[in-house]
Computed example of a mutant assay.
Amino acid sequence: MTRDDQNPANADDEQLLLLPDDLRHELKEPLGPIETDASRLLEAVDGPLIAVGDVVTYHLLEAGHQPDVALVDGRTKREAVDDEIRDAVTSGASIEVRNPPAELSVPVIRALRRALSTDEPTTILVDGEEDLVALPAIVAAPEGASVVYGQPGEGMVHVEVTDDHRSEMRDLLERFEGDTERFWALLEADETDS
């Protein structure tokens, strides 16, 4: 496993964007249809699959589908996931990064870009919180890809990546606090640039 946040000298440089309190309510609404059956959800997937969350990733694996990119943090609803889920979703972790709650950090965005640019399934183990990474994943994933994340107490939200979804996420991310210019530069960089 590689760590993608090896430069402690840049500790202040880690945070890119911070979720402002006034945007939290907007993120409570699902960005797509909610499904409780992973097999049925997978029938609608036609292209790369990005899973955000331990329980979502676990259900997709149980349904026999390894996500192309999975982001997990060992927690669900702010509690540790049980051992069976943790073992299943972290066994193939290939990148480990820090990303504090309610933030998007440099390491997690670099890891997302790297994972999206490889043909091998990639699991990113996040020390902190991975929830918000669904937003830049929708922007950076190719047309027709699927981003799936958990809606607590309801199921799995399936977002098929389209120009409209990308535009909606761009507008939302522009309203975060922090260095949006650097965020976009990192998110949209060629993997060879970073």
Score class of each variant (00 low, 15 high):
residue 3 R to A: 07
residue 4 D to I: 08
residue 5 D to V: 05
residue 7 N to T: 05
residue 9 A to E: 14
residue 10 N to C: 10
residue 15 Q to R: 14
residue 17 L to H: 06
residue 20 P to I: 12
residue 22 D to N: 15
residue 24 R to Q: 14
residue 25 H to S: 14
residue 26 E to V: 01
residue 30 P to A: 06
residue 31 L to K: 11
residue 32 G to M: 10
residue 33 P to N: 10
residue 37 D to K: 12
residue 37 D to C: 06
residue 38 A to Q: 03
residue 40 R to V: 15
residue 43 E to V: 02
residue 43 E to Q: 14
residue 46 D to T: 11
residue 46 D to N: 15
residue 47 G to P: 08
residue 48 P to F: 00
residue 49 L to I: 09
residue 55 V to W: 01
residue 56 V to H: 07
residue 56 V to M: 09
residue 56 V to T: 15
residue 57 T to I: 07
residue 62 E to N: 06
residue 73 D to E: 06
residue 73 D to V: 04
residue 74 G to S: 07
residue 77 K to N: 15
residue 78 R to W: 10
residue 81 V to F: 03
residue 83 D to I: 02
residue 85 I to F: 02
residue 85 I to P: 06
residue 92 G to S: 13
residue 93 A to C: 08
residue 99 N to F: 05
residue 100 P to F: 06
residue 102 A to Q: 08
residue 110 R to W: 01
residue 114 R to I: 03
residue 119 D to V: 07
residue 120 E to R: 14
residue 125 L to M: 04
residue 126 V to Q: 07
residue 126 V to I: 15
residue 128 G to L: 04
residue 128 G to C: 13
residue 129 E to M: 11
residue 133 V to W: 02
residue 134 A to W: 06
residue 135 L to Q: 05
residue 139 V to C: 06
residue 140 A to S: 13
residue 142 P to N: 05
residue 152 P to S: 06
residue 155 G to Y: 09
residue 156 M to I: 04
residue 158 H to K: 13
residue 158 H to I: 00
residue 161 V to P: 04
residue 161 V to R: 02
residue 163 D to L: 08
residue 165 H to Y: 00
residue 166 R to K: 15
residue 167 S to P: 00
residue 168 E to P: 00
residue 169 M to G: 00
residue 172 L to F: 02
residue 173 L to S: 07
residue 175 R to H: 05
residue 176 F to P: 00
residue 180 T to Y: 05
residue 183 F to N: 08
residue 184 W to Q: 12
residue 185 A to K: 15
residue 190 D to I: 01
